[in-house]
Write a protein that binds this DNA or RNA. Structure first.
Lengths: 197, 197
DNA sequence: TAAAAGTCTTAAACTAGTTCATTTTTTTTC
DNA sequence: GAAAAAAAATGAACTAGTTTAAGACTTTTA
């Protein structure tokens, strides 16, 4: 994939909520950095300060923390047409507690902190874009955290498969367990149980 | 409390992120509805379509869903200077799955769906206000959903007490259990255990 | 201010999910 | 394409949190 394609993708993503003139499109693209991450490479590691927010043009990454026992907790799988990063660290400049690791060769577009600030000055419409983007993210986070509490592990697995059917086939069972919030052993049990149903 | 006080509160809240002229302040206030809810009364019930987003000037409310077994899961306690409602239902006009019930006599300011739309037309600065508000909510939701997964019940209780020391004394142990995600019986055990430490 | 309703405590039996240990299968790497 | 590394499956012993039940304490309401 050349960068023309990733630019088209991100412009289509933005066009969901705001209309940009040709000039604004060019300006926006000029504020983005092109980033490639090989499978198993890290885009971010705990302790660093997040310098970019990312749009994924191609590939798949897992976003996770490690608890005190060193066990990973995956908070999201980021694929094409999604946004990722650690907004808390990006905004506050505090060190992140997240790792972001590519599970496939991936191509991203990143916006730096200073360009993120510039963007609102130069194209105020982007306040609206991000207002709507964050509003929608908030809605889906709230839904998800409710599911996390009120459903048992089997139901959470079935809900994930239903909501992200394409993702299930691109990730390992172990990573899925770390996302669902159970051990790989129990995940294995669940899957063979669900398949038998 | 008369409404002047609640207006001052909401304007101070908004002033955290944007500056308004006197005229804009008046315009904004004119778009808000004054709402009072008595203790134990509902601000919202599952099945309704959310018509307002609310700012709490005074009081305390619990936001919760009921699972298939009829057990409540509290997703937040909303107190003075916080915002509440069901944004998903407010935005999509789908019926809400939430109940919002006052745990104390409360006074709120509500913005209707049509006024929310108007607000952005009349005072575009509010795109920025909500962009930042949602961004910060998102950050705290992400933090919280991570805690929910990686901490055990005792740790979740201690974290809640530390983060919201004023709220703990205003709610019942039963409601706290429904928020932490455990049974009231186990909550009772935890509290006597933590007090003995 | 008495009775009713709701909340809190305690304890024993139970269950969803963990831990640990071993074997089989799949994927990666040279 | 063989060897090494990682992922998946299986099973037995274990634990954090649930369920059920019953009595004590507090708050609400008439």
């Amino acid at each position: 994939m050349n960068f023309k394609e990733s630019h088209t993708l991100i412009l289509n993503n933005v066009a969901r909520f705001i209309d940009l003139t040709e000039l604004e499109k060019q300006k926006y693209i000029s504020l983005l950095a092109e980033v490639k991450v090989k499978k198993k490479a890290y885009l971010m590691q705990a302790g660093e300060i997040a310098q970019y927010e990312y749009f994924i043009a191609k590939g798949c990454l897992k976003v996770y923390t490690l608890d005190e026992d060193g066990a990973p907790h995956i908070s999201m799988f980021a694929i094409e047409d999604y946004w990722t990063g650690d907004m808390a660290s990006f905004m506050t400049k505090e060190p992140t507690r997240y790792f972001i690791k590519a599970t496939e060769d991936s191509e991203l577009l990143g916006i730096s902190r200073s360009n993120y600030g510039l963007l609102f000055q130069e194209i105020p419409k982007f306040e609206r874009f991000y207002r709507i983007l964050y509003q929608r993210s908030l809605i889906s986070y709230i839904r998800r955290s409710n599911h996390g509490i009120s459903l048992d592990a089997v139901e959470r697995y079935i809900a994930f498969k239903k909501k992200y059917p394409k993702v299930v086939n691109r990730i390992t069972q172990k990573d899925l367990a770390a996302y669902i919030g159970i051990t790989p052993e129990f995940m294995s049990k669940i899957i063979s149980k669900v398949n038998r149903m």
